[in-house]
Design a protein around this nucleic acid. Structure first.
Lengths: 185, 185
DNA sequence: AGAAGCATGTAATAAGTTACATGATTAA
DNA sequence: TTAATCATGTAACTTATTACATGCTTCT
């Protein structure tokens, strides 16, 4: 059985063959917007995928003491990914630190809490700008519109679209909650 | 050092003293909207919180072979929670299965993918209705408006407000992506 | 000379899920 | 009588993070 991390790796390799190091880097951005993994998790997972016949690798001389391994999808890996995509996702237990704090905010000093939420807002605004820039970059490759659904860029575009609306929603909520707490002086 | 699960438990106990069993149940709903935990995780965590002096318990005759323990916050537990709430949250690595699928959707059959996303939409609509009903219930306890920031209900209200906007955003996105995939026939 | 990036791995720990184990009461 | 709810716990396993360990090349 393949883990979700395994599918994340397959999704990356479907776009571009990579070393384990590169996969970990790509799992920071853009994959990191909705998935993340450290290299210490990637290397063992690649071995499992290899044993299961989903990926293969070619060796090349590496910079360090070991050879570097460039992994790519096998046909079996590609068809497994394709099949997994259309399976309904299992319901996920959401864990949101910020909402947990909001749930307990009535116990805290409203003024200090308002400052904390306002500071969060700034972080989300930065994120939003990044996403918007990325979307413009993708659109510019497709006559200013959304890419066709069979193009790899469609995956980027769809997730960016989600990310942008998500950040906007979160910013609006943060503004609302800071104002509620501010108004209680 | 107290884990996030620890604070989730403190946040629940700040509202109502509970047994471990009850905490696990309350971690399904409403806490489960943004945090979740099984009883097998709750019991060991309660022991840690007890050893750290953040909670205490009174025993009462239980239904089974063991006595039941009703846990409550100590003063130290309450002040620890208060302090934690206003600390800026550490950046969280998001892991969203559905977005991972969207990222790889270009590899799959657009028709089948459109059906999968449309089915997801139905699940989110149900969720949205629950949240909206909950919000009306909370508002009705406060003259149809938001509760004051020092009232425990404010925590519920703030998280419900987030949940409602989140579900709406997600539904709109799911509608968009299904239509994009449908249109590609 | 030192830091950053490329590249591969392992070990220890923390967090979370699933399954095991017991047993009373109540409702269908 | 069988399932569900209340109630407490442990064990095995999976997933993810942090830290350890090595070593070359390139840029400052």
């Amino acid at each position: 059985m393949i883990s979700r991390l395994g599918y994340a790796i397959l999704a990356l390799l479907a776009r571009q063959s990579s070393t384990g190091y590169e996969l970990a880097a790509r799992a920071r951005r853009p994959l990191g917007y909705f998935w993340s993994a450290r290299h210490s998790q990637v290397y063992p997972e690649l071995r499992k995928l290899l044993e299961a016949g989903l990926v293969r690798f070619d060796t090349a001389p590496g910079p360090g003491p070991r050879e570097k391994k460039v992994y790519s999808l096998t046909d079996y890996g590609m068809s497994s990914l394709r099949d997994w995509v259309i399976q309904p996702p299992a319901p996920e237990p959401g864990r949101d630190n910020l909402l947990l704090k909001a749930y307990a905010v009535w116990t805290a000093d409203p003024d200090a809490a308002a400052r904390m939420f306002a500071a969060e807002e700034a972080r989300h605004s930065e994120r939003l700008s990044e996403y918007e820039a990325d979307r413009r970059r993708v659109e510019s490759r497709h006559n200013g519109g959304p890419p066709p659904p069979r193009h790899p860029d469609f995956g980027n575009y769809a997730t960016l679209r989600f990310g942008i609306e998500y950040q906007r929603q979160r910013i609006a909520w943060l503004r609302w909650i800071s104002r509620q707490l501010d108004g209680s002086l």
